[in-house]
Design a protein around this nucleic acid. Sequence first.
DNA 1: CAATACGTTTACGTTAACGTAAACTTGGTC
DNA 2: GACCAAGTTTACGTTAACGTAAACGTATTG
Lengths: 126, 126
Amino acid sequence: MAKSTYTISELANEFGVTTRTIRFYEEKGLVHPRREGQKRLYSPADRVRIKLILRGKRIGMSLRESVELIDMYDPEHNNRDQLHSLIRTVQDRRARLLRQKQDIEDMLAGLDEVQALCERGLEDQQ
Amino acid sequence: MAKSTYTISELANEFGVTTRTIRFYEEKGLVHPRREGQKRLYSPADRVRIKLILRGKRIGMSLRESVELIDMYDPEHNNRDQLHSLIRTVQDRRARLLRQKQDIEDMLAGLDEVQALCERGLEDQQ
DNA sequence: CAATACGTTTACGTTAACGTAAACTTGGTC
DNA sequence: GACCAAGTTTACGTTAACGTAAACGTATTG
């Protein structure tokens, strides 16, 4: 059964970041934990937001970009113009992601080459 | 036929960066263009290095990391220890790239969902 | 009750990756 | 020969994303 609240250090440990990082995210308005007295209490939703932000970080997105992407999910956009605009945003982001994916595949192919060269080098010495 | 030398602004235009960026890369030792008098002249090899650095940037690598990856290709590593060490480095880097690839695929799936919701929203209004 | 663990706020420091401005040289061109 | 585009060096400025330190509250545990 999933927990319903988390302390700051629980989340910090789970995600391998410092508590300073998580407080910084709050300072920037990325999460809004409740308080129990002074202490912060994080909901599962907060936890997911942090997780998605860190996922964004891993592929080089800024915090702002990650939040922008996360916020696409909740539909405050009811009218047609907003929906059309959102679809365009989605398509732009998809194009960038596809390019990144291609970059990664190219690098992986490069690594395969390097490793093959290394292994041949080792065999030749044998 | 590919050019054999490039000026700084040719490369800047091709890659969509400023000349300042390219000079900065030189300052950091990432490229070493020849000089014709005062002016920098870039070889095809310089051009490729810059291209690979920018590819790294797109997926969130630092300049240092990009260079480290690029330098894996030239074998100044002849002895066994160096080869083994390089193989481990390759494997670490591959693991990170695979994770990034997975992250990207997850995000792409998310975007598909968002777009589907948008399109349904538009149809319902019709 | 002293120590220890965990939390808090405030605030200044740090690094990477350039941006921006000033002041200068150099090769064509009108 | 004046001017312009493209290049150069030097140097200070900027932003994001935290790190680090100080100084303090609170609770539980030996």
